[in-house]
Simulated assay, not measured.
Amino acid sequence: MNVTQMSCCPKRSETEAVLVYILLSSISVLTAALNLLVIISISHFKQLQTPTNLLLLSLAVSDFFVGLVMCFQILLSDSCWTLGDRMCTLYGVLDYIITSASVGTMVLISVDRYVAICDPLRYSDKVTVRGVVVCSGLCWVCSLLYNSVVMKENITQPGRYNSCSGECVIVINYIAGVIDVMLTFIGPVSVIIVLYLRVFVVAVSQARAMRSQRSGTFLAKRSELKAAKTLGVVVVVFLMCLCPYYCSTLTSQSSSFSATTVPLESWLFYFNSCLNPIIYAFCYPWFMKSVKLIVTLKILRSDSSETRIL
């Protein structure tokens, strides 16, 4: 496969470089900090450790790593990769693993909401804390193994596709690229859309049934409907940020990834990881309550994990 030749160290004006670094550093720190608050909240407070919230925890972990991965890009000196070929490969592999894990977690969230809304009577039997932990763990393990195979050549021979010093290029062959797009974009996104369309239809009909106060109809709880609405926003925002990233991949002539020239659609995907905790802040009262306890260090009390948050 031919790799597009690029300038390894394009020059920027000092003012432009400072503005870009300040902006990206702010997004990186904010992304890591906000998602760390989500991780601490759900991990610490026992009342928050529901199946749905554990899926949000898995998503927050991937979003937290996105914030850290952004630091690799910010550490570049004048748009040159100065961290060596091995770190270049590590950066590329982490980027792919996090993307796959995020998409997989979104599928699990869609399944969770589908069961909660469409089969509320058996939700507690079908969706358990243990089951969610196992599924989330498998999602991460499969993402790690899958991307290790896809990027085997880059891992075994770091820097093999670099054309000059200061460049960081990751390349996967055409067949692997097509399979990757099918498994990590087209397939999962199709499942997410189908499930949430079904959830939307059922939620609307149940909302009407609640307003008309029909008896004898088994309906999902209002809290489940609210959670479906909130997570629906998360899913829609995720798809809006993800689609440009993969559409760019589909329209490009080569399956290459360059750390020294990260396109706008990649930053849009990264920024999505910052938006999720902001959505929680507006839609989940428990998140703001837990943040106050964390910031005021009240979680250091011995019995703080038993605090009523909901």
Rank of each mutant, 00 (worst) to 15 (best):
I186G: 06
A101G: 02
F271V: 09
Y245I: 05
Q73R: 15
D78Y: 08
Q157F: 07
C241E: 03
Y174S: 13
N154F: 00
L239P: 04
V291A: 04
V93L: 07
G131A: 04
D303Y: 13
L94A: 06
L264Q: 09
Q213K: 15
L56Q: 05
V93I: 10
I27N: 04
S148D: 07
R130Y: 08
G137M: 08
L297R: 11
S248H: 13
L55K: 05
D180R: 00
R86Q: 14
R214P: 07
C71M: 15
R12Y: 14
I186S: 12
L55P: 10
D180A: 14
Y280W: 14
V3L: 00
N154Q: 08
R301I: 15
V150R: 09
Y245C: 12
N162R: 01
K229D: 15
S305V: 14
I175Y: 09
Q213M: 13
I109K: 02
L145Q: 08
L36G: 15
A101T: 14
L34N: 04
I27P: 07
Q5N: 15
S215F: 09
C88A: 06
N53F: 07
I97S: 13
G159N: 04
Y284I: 12
D63G: 12
L59T: 11
K126Q: 09
M1G: 02
L54V: 14
A281K: 10
V103R: 00
C283V: 11
S26L: 08
Y280I: 04
V237T: 04
D63N: 15
V178T: 05
S100I: 06
L250F: 04
L34G: 07
L145S: 11
N162S: 03
V295D: 07
G159W: 00
C8D: 14
S256D: 04
L68K: 08
L138W: 08
C118V: 08
L34R: 03
A33R: 08
S266H: 15
L144K: 06
S28V: 03
C118Y: 07
V235P: 00
L23H: 10
L94Y: 06
C88S: 02
R86N: 11
L108H: 03
S100T: 14
I279A: 01
V178C: 09
I278C: 07
I40C: 02
P158N: 02
T156M: 12
F185M: 08
N162L: 02
V237F: 09
L76F: 10
L30R: 07
S148M: 12
T128A: 11
S25Y: 11
C168S: 01
L275P: 02
L23G: 13
I175F: 14
M182P: 06
N162K: 00
F271K: 02
C118S: 12
L83D: 11
I193Y: 06
P51E: 01
W81Q: 00
S143I: 08
S205L: 13
M240H: 05
V169T: 06
E167G: 00
L183G: 03
V127R: 00
D63Q: 15
W267L: 03
G92I: 01
G67A: 05
W267N: 05
S252D: 10
S248R: 07
G137N: 02
W140C: 06
K292P: 11
V20S: 10
V204F: 09
L242D: 09
Q5D: 04
L138D: 01
T128Q: 03
S305I: 12
A60V: 09
Y114R: 00
K126Y: 11
A17E: 13
S255E: 01
T99D: 06
L19H: 10
S148C: 12
L23N: 12
